[in-house]
């Protein structure tokens, strides 16, 4: 290959990459700067209607239930202020648990039920040994008994 055409290809790919980068920012950020809405925002009607969007929050304690088909899961997403009931058919990530973070994608029906097509687990930034968590839970329980 001639050096000139090689240069041209390199320059072309540089320009293409930069244009691609800018396009990426403009489109992806436009749509996804708000990667998910909180249940409070949804309850306040700030979430898009009749369009696919995401809700993020904690899976409410004691809310996970399976339908008789063993495939459909019902649970609730909460930010401790508002609660949104969710239904989902499909497999769940292994870290999806009650009391832990989750992001669900889907549509809101008119009766306020969120029909999810995708469920992602969102974990926090804490890393510790299993024993430490066990000790923490114990301490937490002890603390609660004292308060009563």
């Amino acid at each position: 290959m001639k050096p000139r055409s090689k240069r041209l290809i390199l320059l072309g790919s540089a320009v293409a990459l930069l244009v691609g980068a800018v396009a990426l920012v403009l489109t992806a950020f436009q749509q996804n700067l708000v990667f998910f809405h909180t249940p409070t925002e949804v309850a306040a009607g700030k979430a898009p209607v009749e369009r696919v969007f995401r809700i993020g929050g904690l899976v409410e304690e004691g809310s996970i239930a399976r339908n008789d088909d063993g495939y459909t899961v019902r649970f609730a997403i909460t930010d401790t202020a508002q609660v949104i009931p969710v239904t989902y058919r499909g497999s769940l990530p292994s870290m999806f648990q009650e009391g832990k973070g989750a992001v669900v994608q889907g549509k809101l029906t008119s009766d306020g039920l969120f029909v999810a097509t995708e469920v992602l687990a969102k974990h926090d930034e804490n890393y510790m040994p299993v024993e430490a968590q066990y000790a923490l839970d114990k301490a937490h329980q002890a603390n609660q008994t004292v308060q009563y």
């Binding site: 990426l24 950020f29 996804n32 990667f35 292994s94 870290m95 999806f96 992602l120 687990a121």
Partner: peptide, 15 residues
């Protein structure tokens, strides 16, 4: 993939 349940999402950090 094993923690969130997906290889990729278009959130602000990853993008």
């Amino acid at each position: 993939k094993p923690t969130w349940g997906t290889y990729w999402v278009w959130d602000a950090r990853l993008t």
